[in-house]
Computed example of a mutant assay.
Amino acid sequence: MSSELLDALTILEKEKGISRDVLIDAMEAALISAYRRNFNQAQNVRIDLNLGSGSMRVFARKEVVDEVFDPRLEISLEDARKINPNYVVEDVVELEVTPKDFGRIAAQTAKQVVTQRVREAERGIIYSEFIDREEDIMTGIVQRQDPKFIYVSLGKIEAILPANEQMPNEHYKPHDRIKVFITKVEKTTKGPQIFVSRTHPGLLKRLFEIEVPEIYDGTVEIKSVAREAGDRSKISVHSDNKEVDPVGSCVGPRGNRVQAVVNELKGEKIDIVKWSEDPVVFVANALSPSKVLDVLVNEAEKATTVIVPDYQLSLAIGKRGQNARLAAKLTGWKIDIKAETEAREIGIFPRDNEPLLSADDDYEEDFD
């Protein structure tokens, strides 16, 4: 083996981040393959590489037996003791069998095998790096697109953004920088395959973690997210610290924190509401920006009936039912909205000895 090949191993180690041991193992496997293929040998062989001189030797490994059935794999006890009188049955004898022109042939044959092993090692490193980034956010650069996918460069690898994970109000051009949410990392025969999304609720959550220090350090917690990507989203937030306003923390001074998220999502509207373990309060908050007079809870069916002022009915339901739909996703409760007049007619409002809710009591924000 030439010194140039050793130099190449060193360069690969530095540039590709592959350990020298992996590269040496790949080289030994390649040389064994080259020996068996080019010299029509089926022996159990070992390659001895001298990294200092760049030389190589091939040793056939044979088991010491009383009676030889396969001379390629076995050696008699008598012949073994001619080499070393201390050998006993079941020992392994190593005999040098290096062909004279093995270096030239090995270099030609081993190149492809080594390249493949190096490629596999690189893929393994990339997979290990990105499997830890599942459900995380990264900034990528749009490379190209076809009818099914947009291909986004994440540095060492190209990720796939499927059509159903693209925001309907966005148009992507080559060299655009976009933030994406890594939904899945798979191992394939062609290497790691990474799928990303612009519509996943996790993207919204991670964006707030980036923009809001109180979320990043755990002072404020995002309890739930409901999203209709490109149009409107709702998040519920909570803090165990009574001195911290979780909604105000997410809004930021003059709304700059939430506005940064809105800008990244190309104008997607975001409602930030206060979470509560009380479903009456939580459902009322979730229907922001509408006012709520009362919430009737059916624990058995995990359903609620919400009463709102007559003039607030369309606002509570939202365009095409969006506000009610998002509130239901956010809270995990079914929501049936009724106007005050109807609720009075059927006798479910007002309730005796029950205080009425008012959305004015809760701090809620709606950002365009």
Rank of each mutant, 00 (worst) to 15 (best):
T189M: 14
V196C: 05
R206F: 06
F181S: 03
P168I: 05
A163W: 11
F208A: 11
I210F: 15
K173M: 06
K184L: 10
Q166M: 06
P162Q: 07
I160S: 09
I182G: 01
P213F: 09
E186I: 00
T183N: 10
I178Y: 02
K187H: 08
L207R: 09
E165A: 01
I157F: 04
D176P: 04
D176W: 05
E186G: 03
T183H: 03
K184D: 14
P168K: 01
N169M: 01
P201Q: 09
I182R: 00
F195E: 12
E165V: 06
K156A: 13
M167Y: 02
N169V: 01
H175G: 05
E186T: 07
K173R: 15
K184W: 02
K179W: 05
E158C: 05
E170N: 00
K187Q: 15
K179S: 08
G191P: 04
E186S: 14
F195M: 14
H171V: 12
V196S: 06
E209M: 15
Q193N: 07
K173F: 03
L207D: 10
K190N: 13
I157L: 12
K190S: 14
P168H: 06
E211C: 09
T199W: 07
Q193E: 15
E209H: 13
K179F: 01
T188K: 02
Q193W: 12
L207H: 06
L161G: 05
P192F: 03
V212F: 14
I157P: 02
I178W: 00
D176A: 05
E209I: 12
N169L: 01
E165Q: 13
E165H: 09
I160K: 13
T188H: 11
K205C: 06
G202A: 09
L204S: 10
V180Y: 01
I178V: 13
F208K: 13
S197G: 04
P162Y: 04
V180A: 03
K187I: 12
R206T: 08
G202L: 12
P213S: 10
I157T: 13
L204T: 09
N169Y: 04
G202F: 10
Q166D: 02
P174Q: 01
I182F: 00
K173I: 05
A163E: 09
T188M: 07
F208N: 05
V185L: 07
M167S: 15
L161V: 11
F181I: 00
V196E: 13
R198N: 11
K184T: 15
E170R: 02
K187R: 15
I210T: 09
L207T: 02
E186A: 09
R177K: 10
L203V: 06
P192T: 05
S197E: 07
N164M: 10
G202Y: 11
A159L: 11
I178E: 02
R177M: 12
T183E: 11
L203D: 07
P201F: 10
A163N: 08
P192K: 11
K190Y: 13
H171Q: 14
V185W: 01
Y172M: 00
I160W: 03
P192I: 06
S197C: 13
V196K: 05
P192D: 04
K184C: 01
I160H: 02
S197L: 12
M167K: 06
K187A: 14
N164T: 15
P168W: 06
N164W: 11
I194L: 08
V185G: 02
R198Q: 08
R198T: 03
F181C: 03
L161E: 01
